[in-house]
Every structure is written in structure tokens, then in C-alpha cells.
């Protein structure tokens, strides 16, 4: 059965507090922090982008487990902030982990679920016997227009999952998707920032698709929420995943390790992936994890994951690379002016 061979995450060290953003735009900070359940968000360094985040996450994955990079037959990077509109981030990643040239590669875009779409693609290629390992990455330096609601959460980070069949640390028992044409959030070609439908992004977008995929997954697996030790849902804020977990019958304890958005913000294509990485950081053999992503436009991918003994065996060294909690600790706080400089929001000559 296909599964996760190794994984790694990466989060830039810079942070901005939501209070600081609210100060600049004259918003009520406590209302916003309370409403979103997010206190601060990550900010890339001046020389970091989706490609550098993807490479660091991939290298962290390969630090945890010795894999011949030449055996990686596919690299897919999901993001809505690829550094180039045309020229794949995945090629840069492939080169930087020495997986080139005998591999296939492509960049994915499906709003915030492009990373989990990459996992599904790798599962298919591995399952069909076309490749031995496939690398699926979700990473973003998320975009939100100044003063837009998105600016309070749009964050930087990502995670990489190596998919294969040999001795996985977690088996993926199954995956299903739920997809419709729903214009809840979009960015037109050539535009710097996405636009969204405000409250329309809620029920017709996030909740309909996450619940749709989750129900399909539970039905296919013949499981109920109580069969799982952990659950990870896409987390554009802390409120949505908490509410959808409750609707589906998951407890706050089940989603706790994977709910990183209060300190991280929304890393878009990285969000569900980093949540899963944070859950694997603490999982034990036999733990079962329910995962459902969401991408605007819209769709959700759901996964039924079970951790194996390999997560504590010798070939996999979980502590050889930083955990998500470690990546979140020791932040460097910046003010809005430095945040604007780091994000390239200042118009230069």
C-alpha cells in the first residue's frame, strides 16, 4: 500500500502580530484576533520565496530518511505563489535535492489544496508502479492585498511528503475528492492579489466541500470520526476547522496537534500539509489520522492515514529535522514597515 516514506516542513523565522496589522489599518485588533483565532503569522525573509521554502521542506524530509534522490521519479509543487508564472518551481526543487534528471515534474495550482492534489498524483504514479518515490510539496508565500481581510492571515511556509510503497511511516488507506465550480476566491492572471466573495467563502465554499469530501471518505473507508486519533482540516483561520470538525463529529483534542494556524497563519497550499506534518511530529505507531484539505474554486481532498511502526524504527529519524513546533518557536517579530519590505509591497523605482 502506498504511504508516506518521510516528510519535512519549513517555516520562515519572521512573524508579524495581527495587532500590528490592525494598528496600521485602524481595525479593532481584539475583534479580529478573536474572530479569526489567529494571533500572528509568518513572514518570509527578503530572500525567501515558494521555491526556497519548498527546497528547505524537501531537504528536511530527506534529512529524516536516507533515500537515493535518483529514485525520486516525480516532484510536484503545489502553490498559488510560484516565483515564475511560467517555469516550474518543481524543477528547482528537483535540482536542489539532486533528483534530476530522470524524473517528471510539474507545478500545481488549486488554491489552498494544490499540495494535497500533488500527494494524490504521487500516490497514483507509485500505485501504478510507474515510479518508486514521488515528492509532493505544498508551499506558499501567501498573498493578501493590503488592508484586505486576507492580509491578517496570509502566511509563508510549506511541507514536503515523499510518497512510496517501501516501509512507509504512514499508510494512506484511501483518498477521495469533492470538486465543483465555485467562484469563492480567485486571482486573475496578471493580478498581484487574490479577491474573494467574503462570507460566500464559508458555507458554499469551505464547509460544503470539506464536509462533502469528508463524508465520502468516511463512507468509503467504512469509518466514523471516533476511529481516528487525529484529524487535520484546511485552516484559513482557527474558526473554520474547529467548526467543521464539530459538525463532522471530531473532538477538539483530535484536531489540536495539527491546528497550527493560531501561530502560523494560513500558508495556503502549505496549510493542510503543515498541519499533517505537525500531527506526524507527535503521532505513534497505530495512530489513525483523518485529513481533509480545501482549495477555493473549489474542492477538497480527503485522506485516511495510519501511522506504522516505521515512524519509530531506525531508518526514519524523526528528530533529525525540526518539528513544526520547533519551526514555530524562536520567532523574530517585525513591524508593518519591515513586513511590507519583506513581502515586496513597497513600490520601488
Amino acid at each position: 500500500m502506498t504511504g508516506i516514506i518521510t516528510y519535512g516542513a519549513y517555516i520562515p523565522r519572521y512573524r508579524i502580530r495581527l495587532e500590528e496589522i490592525a494598528r496600521v489599518w485602524g481595525d479593532n485588533a481584539q475583534d479580529i484576533i478573536g474572530g479569526l483565532g489567529v494571533r500572528e503569522k509568518s513572514v518570509p525573509d527578503l530572500d525567501e520565496d515558494t521555491a526556497t521554502i519548498a527546497v528547505e521542506a524537501a531537504r528536511n524530509a530527506l534529512t529524516r530518511r536516507e533515500i537515493d534522490p535518483g529514485e525520486i521519479g516525480a516532484v510536484y509543487v503545489g502553490s498559488e505563489s510560484h516565483p515564475y508564472a511560467v517555469k516550474p518551481t518543481a524543477c528547482t526543487v528537483g535540482e536542489a535535492i539532486r533528483a534530476t534528471p530522470a524524473m517528471t515534474a510539474a507545478d500545481y495550482e488549486f488554491a489552498c489544496k494544490a499540495g494535497t492534489a500533488a500527494i494524490q498524483t504521487c500516490m497514483g504514479l507509485v500505485g501504478a508502479g510507474m515510479i518508486r518515490y514521488g515528492l509532493a510539496i505544498g508551499a506558499d508565500v501567501a498573498q493578501g492585498a493590503p488592508s484586505d481581510a486576507l492580509e491578517y492571515t496570509a502566511a509563508a511556509g510549506g511541507a514536503a511528503f515523499l510518497i512510496g510503497r517501501d516501509d512507509p511511516i504512514a499508510r494512506i488507506h484511501g483518498t477521495v475528492s469533492f470538486t465543483t465550480d465555485t467562484p469563492d476566491f480567485w486571482r486573475r492572471e496578471g493580478q498581484n492579489y487574490p479577491r474573494h466573495g467574503g462570507r460566500f467563502t464559508g458555507d458554499p465554499g469551505y464547509f460544503k466541500h470539506v464536509q462533502g469530501a469528508a463524508h465520502l471518505m468516511l463512507e468509503q473507508a467504512g469509518t466514523s470520526p471516533g476511529d481516528y486519533d487525529y484529524a487535520v482540516f484546511h485552516q484559513p483561520n482557527a474558526k473554520f476547522p474547529r467548526r467543521v470538525a464539530e459538525h463532522l463529529g471530531f473532538t477538539p483534542e483530535q484536531i489540536r496537534p495539527g491546528l497550527v494556524v493560531p501561530e502560523l497563519g494560513n500558508t495556503y497550499s502549505g496549510a493542510t500539509m503543515v498541519g499533517l506534518a505537525a500531527t506526524l511530529d507527535v503521532a505513534k505507531p497505530g495512530d489513525r489520522i483523518f485529513v481533509t484539505s480545501f482549495g477555493s474554486g473549489a474542492g477538497s481532498d480527503s485522506f485516511d492515514v495510519e501511522v506504522t511502526d516505521a515512524i519509530e524504527a531506525g531508518a526514519f529519524r524523526r528528530d533529525a529535522a525540526p518539528t513544526v513546533r520547533q519551526l514555530l518557536s524562536n520567532p523574530i517579530y517585525v513591524d508593518y514597515a519591515h513586513y511590507a519590505k519583506h513581502k515586496g509591497k513597497i513600490v520601488m523605482q
Binding site: D47, E48, D49, T52, Y84, D281, P322, Q326, S329, N330
Partner: peptide, 27 residues
């Protein structure tokens, strides 16, 4: 890391930089 770019529309030059080699703090 990014080393440099050829302006806003040109190629991005990636490469190697260094950071202090300190252990990650306990999470």
C-alpha cells in the same frame, strides 16, 4: 536562498547562503 534577480521580469538566481548553526529550540 535567493541570491539575486535580473530585475522584476528576469531570471531568479538561487543558490547557497549560510545561517548560524545553532540547534532548534525545544518545540
Amino acid at each position: 536562498r535567493r541570491i539575486g534577480t535580473e530585475g522584476d521580469s528576469g531570471v531568479i538566481y538561487y543558490g547557497t547562503k549560510f545561517v548560524p548553526d545553532v540547534p532548534y529550540p525545544e518545540g
